[in-house]
Design a protein around this nucleic acid. Sequence first.
DNA 1: CGCGTTATTGATACGAGTCAAGATCGGTGG
DNA 2: CCACCGATCTTGACTCGTATCAATAACGCG
Lengths: 248, 248
Amino acid sequence: MLLNEPTLTTRQCGDCPIRHRAVCARCETDELDRLDQIKYYRNYEAGQTVIWSGDRMDFVGSVVSGIATLTQTMEDGRTQMVGLLLPSDFVGRPGRDNAAYDVVAVTDMVMCCFRKKPFETMMTETPHIAQRLLEMTLDELDAAREWMLVLGRKTAREKIASLLAIIARRDASLNLAGVKGPLTFELPLTREAMADYLGLTLETVSRQVSALKKDGVITLEGKRRVTIHDFNRLLDEAGDDSDGGMPV
Amino acid sequence: MLLNEPTLTTRQCGDCPIRHRAVCARCETDELDRLDQIKYYRNYEAGQTVIWSGDRMDFVGSVVSGIATLTQTMEDGRTQMVGLLLPSDFVGRPGRDNAAYDVVAVTDMVMCCFRKKPFETMMTETPHIAQRLLEMTLDELDAAREWMLVLGRKTAREKIASLLAIIARRDASLNLAGVKGPLTFELPLTREAMADYLGLTLETVSRQVSALKKDGVITLEGKRRVTIHDFNRLLDEAGDDSDGGMPV
DNA sequence: CGCGTTATTGATACGAGTCAAGATCGGTGG
DNA sequence: CCACCGATCTTGACTCGTATCAATAACGCG
């Protein structure tokens, strides 16, 4: 409840760390000026719910830093993660009044929020925003379809390997490490969150992580720090085509 | 291989049955004229593969009539359906050269194809197309997320009930039947295709369909004609909130 | 009518879920 | 600094749901 500091600095879009990847990526200076007038920053603490499913949404926005999850919950409590939101990812759906999913901050998080109505108006007037949003949505749809294969057809072990590969890949792309050599990264998710991502129980997640460790596919430092020695080996465990991803 | 008739009639967009729901829905007359110049029709027979994953795509397009599936296959043959394409649905991704999924015609099918390059050019110039495509993509993303909950967290029985509910709903919306009273429709999918949709085996699909029939949730006429007597009962079996879908 | 395709049903196996202890981690206060 | 506590994670024993393997049955097309 108590935000330690009102870090609601009216930051300049120019220095924004997600400037070139978020929904505003294609905007010209004058368009950024317009966005500036309808935007504000909000901070969330780890564990805090950003949006409740069904609630009225009066903003949309971008994740600036930190990580959040998009989840669906059934009446009896079964939950499935349907999105993992990283910096530059877009939250909310223009044209929809009520949220369809719960959004929860996994780590401390900063969001750049746009008031919904003005943002929608701007979308019809400046094609750059709609174009970029289309591109991002198509990417998300592809990710969702990859995820459907994981959920529907992979074994528990393959699911864990797939998730580790996804996180490792993203981490490598941020840190500019090549696919060669060992990769080390911090797991942003608890075992339970991993289970919700993969349609498993947290016990099964724990068992399969242990199994991958025992078989030398990964090494653990503490419970969260993971090292992958051979990325292709991991892809193999994930059931993925190791040469895939980049068709000729 | 042999197309019985070259039904490649250069149909007028005005009489097109999907005119108001497809990617061209928002286009003005002059925009339709431009589309007309880059479009052509293609027919496919039931079972025919429209696009192979990895193949170069030189067109995108809309399903005019019939049904197709989007599937992913792992090296060892496990397959997962990741999309069910109905009339007015869009096929292909502007900006991508190679297909990411297999597209297979389930019934005889007609597609309205647009040459990819000119279509992409047109997209940057006429916002109406990009706007409509964004809307459609957002809808697909929502459907994919709903599907992820089904794949990750539902039991076999709930999965079957969910699929029947989806098909029944779509059928009702086409035939303008209310949610009241019994609904009857033809299943467009084989048991195997249903299994690929739901991440099950075809034997399990068969067993659960039989179980729902034994319990009076559905009636079968032959193997494909299904009657649902109480839609809310079906939603209940699907684990869905029966009053849901339409938040206040 | 007969054949191939599609669907049903049965017996059994196996992977993941469930229930239940414990162990480890990280933070807090004596 | 170390002991303690709650949260998180690990591991074990057992259960249950779905897959697998296999044999029939029903449909629909020629």
